[in-house]
């Protein structure tokens, strides 16, 4: 896999310090599983965070018992043995696979508008105000309605590719977009483009027709 578009440092840092909405962290962790370069950036950020911790001045007295716990240590061979949860391959990395009922090939797509279908994925914090997580399938040549976002939108390409004002995005790539970015992706090969999309807040569509669509589409 030749990944050209990576996760922005601002998003990675929010992943490292634990302040990302859950929807967005699913996409980040899924990309990290296939992207050594982004994992290296995460490792650097964790090194920095650890320096802030170990070099800080302690200001509180600890009540907890400093003696070693009287419990068995984990055996590395058992603890790192491949877990049985990977026996059903769903064609995508965890933690996305954990949220899909079936293999990516067998997703029961729901049609939104001609050429575009979706499949919403559930997250533990299911409040729509916290954003949504969904799979989106764009048929070849179909333009998505042009839209912007009231928060952050992060997309990972799982199959195929698309092209928009920002460039060409292929399997494994990430489009990490802030609000105020307007874009109109078009699947640019003869295959469906399947993406994983997370938002931190609902999208806003431009144009009269697109605005009519929004309550329907809900993305």
């Amino acid at each position: 896999m030749n990944i050209q578009h990576h996760i922005g440092d601002d998003t990675l840092m929010a992943y490292v310090n634990g302040t990302l909405p859950e929807t967005i962290s699913v996409v980040v962790a899924t990309h990290l599983a296939i992207c050594p370069e982004c994992r290296k950036n995460v490792a650097l950020m964790e090194d920095i965070a650890a320096l802030y911790l170990v070099e800080s001045e302690p200001a509180y007295h600890v009540d907890a018992d400093p003696t070693a716990p009287d419990i068995q240590q984990l055996d590395p061979e058992i603890a790192t043995a491949a877990s049985t949860k990977y026996q059903t391959d769903k064609g995508v990395p965890n933690p996305l696979a954990d949220r899909m009922p079936v293999h990516l090939e067998d997703i029961p797509w729901k049609k939104l508008i001609p050429g575009i279908s979706h499949y919403p994925l559930s997250v533990a914090d299911g409040s729509r105000k916290k954003g949504v997580l969904r799979l989106l399938k764009i048929a070849p040549g179909t333009p998505m309605p042009e839209h912007s976002h009231s928060g952050q939108e992060i997309t990972m390409i799982l199959r195929g590719s698309y092209i928009d004002d920002l460039g060409r995005f292929q399997t494994g790539d990430i489009a990490d977009l802030d609000d105020e970015v307007w874009h109109q992706p078009v699947a640019d090969t003869d295959k469906d483009c399947i993406c994983l999309i997370a938002t931190s807040a609902p999208l806003k569509f431009s144009g009269f027709f697109s605005r009519l669509l929004q309550p329907l589409v809900g993305i």
Binding site: M1, V16, N17, G18, E22, S25, V26, V28, A29, T30, L32, A33, I34, C35, P36, R39, K40, A49, L53, T80, A82, S83, Y86, D89, G91, V92, P93, N94, P95, A97, V123, A124, D125
Partner: peptide
């Protein structure tokens, strides 16, 4: 420590890539 903190405050455990995942691409 960070994961313990996140696990304490969230409904769900922290999401991390797992090298045992068959889709994982190693360094």
């Amino acid at each position: 420590a960070r994961n313990a903190k996140i696990d304490r405050f969230r409904k769900e455990t922290r999401l991390v890539p797992d090298p045992n995942d068959p889709s994982y691409i190693p360094d």
